[in-house]
Amino acid sequence: MDPFRFVAAADEHAARAAASAGARYLAGGTTLVDLMKLHVERPRTVVDINALPLTEIAETPGGGVRVGALVRNSDMAHHPLIRARFPLLSQALLAGASPQIRNMATTGGNLLQRTRCYYFRDTSAACNKREPGSGCSALDGCNRIHAVLGTSDHCIATHPSDMCVALAALDAFVLLSGPRGSRVVPLVEFHLMPGDHPERETAIEPGELITAVDVPPLGFATRSAYVKVRDRASYAFALASAAVALDLRGGEIRDARIALGGVATKPWRAREAERTLVGRPPDAASFRAAADAALAGARPRAHNGFKIELAKRTIVRALTRAGAMA
């Protein structure tokens, strides 16, 4: 690790005051400390925000839930409100990392997880995300784990989060607090596609602090599933994942939510796929048509073409599972 100044912030004001240029907020540390050891993250100041009172999970009017930024992933996953109303979110959280890491990792930190791209994590490689303008070693390198959706000529790194995929399907909102007050950003707009500036990953502004995530009410989220496919059965990042929810009435799909992980540069909402399902019966043909629509824009590189069919089958399996729920 490079040397840094350590500041333990007692409250939000102190945290923001200490967060000058080159500072990083420390919550669970599961991404930040790892990347500091690799010299990928080199903060001059580390501001420990763990004392801030952002640890509540509370019901919001209409049946939604507000989750504090410092709620640990394990606590969110096992919370009765999350389990009962948003099973896909609980499943996504429990599909991520390991119990130890879930006890550390926070809601806000999970939103700011950095990619697992080998070249981003290796300071001897070219990476436009880590070192803007240096190039992208992944484009013609080992790109089996890389994205097929939302890529650019400058970056094909996948977004690693499971939680964010479920939150994208649920139309969640990110609550931010900053020097100029508070604001709310839809989760699907919070993460940015790489485009010409892969170093810009989120809509967060300097000095802003994530305070909470709002999950709005969605009645049919009780009929939902998160399916994750990876190289081993547990404790691995997704090759492909799907968070889905189905509004099923009278043998017909009235509404649907589909979001993808492991295959895109950001938590990927597949709205075209959702539209193809409306008015159709919940059967294999409908699910396959939706999967085809979701991956229609996919652009593979040399080693990740398999992800297109894998993602389609993951979507079909998730929809089948949700459709079969009582």
């Binding site: 333990a8 540390g29 599961t30 890491i101 006890n103 550390m104």
Partner: peptide, 15 residues
């Protein structure tokens, strides 16, 4: 009382 990874925990953050 909860299991965590001590390699990713800064000692100073365990104050």
């Amino acid at each position: 009382g909860r299991r965590v990874l001590s390699c990713l925990t800064l000692a100073a953050a365990a104050q």
